[in-house]
Amino acid sequence: MDVTTSTNAAPGFVKFPDYAIVLEKAGQECVATLQGRVIAKSNRAIILKESNHMPVVYFPLDDIERDTVSPSDKETFCPFKGTASYWSFGNEKNIAWSYEDPFDEMLDIKDYVAFYSDRLDAPILA
């Protein structure tokens, strides 16, 4: 993709073309549990590896338990991925986020959800 002609190009990649974000298949079943309850489980999860950050597991939206989920009004902006919307599960506020309309370079994380793994019962990846 030619980011110089894209209408939804990530400004971060334009300004810092050497910044690296790599997506790869998890290659194993990933499970997120919160207070003893499975809130996400998938064989289709992807791992996002980003410069200067720990790897993050993203679950397909279809593999998220939605019985106790509620959208939050919190949003953050990443110049490489776009605007993140946050979700709460039960009493855990803003424990998950997704990029509903990511920049063109990150379209592969659209319809995926990530969790703050340190707020879950156990790490997602063993």
Score class of each variant (00 low, 15 high):
residue 113 V to C: 03
residue 67 D to C: 14
residue 82 G to F: 12
residue 27 G to F: 13
residue 51 S to Y: 09
residue 3 V to G: 12
residue 107 L to Q: 13
residue 23 L to E: 08
residue 118 D to E: 14
residue 42 S to K: 05
residue 85 S to R: 07
residue 19 Y to H: 09
residue 63 D to R: 01
residue 22 V to I: 13
residue 51 S to E: 14
residue 122 A to Q: 14
residue 126 A to N: 13
residue 33 T to F: 05
residue 59 F to W: 02
residue 42 S to N: 01
residue 71 P to H: 12
residue 101 D to R: 11
residue 117 S to L: 06
residue 56 V to L: 10
residue 79 P to W: 15
residue 101 D to S: 11
residue 2 D to Y: 15
residue 98 S to F: 05
residue 47 I to Y: 07
residue 55 P to Q: 10
residue 10 A to W: 12
residue 82 G to P: 03
residue 81 K to E: 10
residue 61 L to Q: 04
residue 78 C to A: 14
residue 35 Q to N: 12
residue 116 Y to P: 01
residue 22 V to M: 12
residue 89 F to A: 11
residue 113 V to E: 00
residue 109 I to E: 05
residue 28 Q to G: 13
residue 85 S to F: 02
residue 84 A to H: 00
residue 117 S to M: 08
residue 67 D to W: 05
residue 117 S to C: 10
residue 91 N to H: 15
residue 6 S to C: 08
residue 42 S to I: 00
residue 95 I to V: 09
residue 81 K to Y: 06
residue 49 K to E: 04
residue 20 A to P: 10
residue 32 A to I: 03
residue 71 P to G: 05
residue 70 S to E: 14
residue 9 A to F: 02
residue 49 K to C: 15
residue 54 M to C: 10
residue 12 G to H: 14
residue 67 D to E: 15
residue 35 Q to S: 14
residue 38 V to W: 02
residue 83 T to K: 12
residue 41 K to P: 15
residue 77 F to E: 07
residue 73 D to W: 15
residue 110 K to Y: 04
residue 102 P to V: 02
residue 13 F to W: 14
residue 5 T to W: 04
residue 67 D to K: 11
residue 15 K to M: 07
residue 23 L to S: 07
residue 11 P to K: 12
residue 21 I to K: 05
residue 55 P to R: 01
residue 1 M to A: 06
residue 38 V to I: 09
residue 115 F to Q: 00
residue 39 I to D: 00
residue 2 D to C: 09
residue 111 D to I: 01
residue 61 L to A: 14
residue 113 V to Q: 05
residue 64 I to F: 11
residue 64 I to V: 06
residue 89 F to C: 05
residue 84 A to W: 05
residue 5 T to I: 12
residue 9 A to N: 04
residue 117 S to E: 12
residue 52 N to I: 13
residue 75 E to I: 13
residue 54 M to S: 13
residue 111 D to W: 11
residue 80 F to W: 00
residue 103 F to N: 01
residue 85 S to I: 01
residue 39 I to C: 03
residue 29 E to T: 07
residue 125 L to M: 13
residue 25 K to M: 04
residue 115 F to S: 00
residue 47 I to E: 02
residue 110 K to W: 03
residue 98 S to H: 15
residue 82 G to R: 08
residue 122 A to L: 07
residue 72 S to E: 14
residue 39 I to P: 07
residue 1 M to S: 06
residue 111 D to Y: 14
residue 80 F to H: 04
residue 51 S to V: 04
residue 124 I to G: 09
residue 83 T to E: 05
residue 83 T to G: 07
residue 24 E to Q: 15
residue 39 I to A: 07
residue 38 V to K: 00
residue 42 S to E: 03
residue 86 Y to F: 04
residue 56 V to A: 13
residue 65 E to V: 00
residue 76 T to V: 04
residue 14 V to T: 13
residue 85 S to P: 14
residue 78 C to L: 08
residue 86 Y to A: 04
residue 39 I to L: 06
residue 20 A to C: 12
residue 78 C to V: 01
residue 6 S to R: 00
residue 16 F to A: 03
residue 26 A to F: 04
residue 80 F to R: 01
residue 48 L to V: 13
residue 30 C to V: 03
residue 68 T to M: 15
residue 27 G to S: 09
residue 14 V to P: 07
residue 66 R to Q: 08
residue 22 V to A: 06
residue 71 P to A: 03
residue 49 K to D: 02
residue 41 K to H: 04
residue 33 T to L: 00
residue 9 A to C: 07
residue 65 E to A: 10
residue 45 A to K: 01
residue 115 F to H: 01
residue 73 D to V: 15
residue 30 C to M: 15
residue 56 V to C: 03
residue 28 Q to Y: 13
residue 28 Q to T: 06
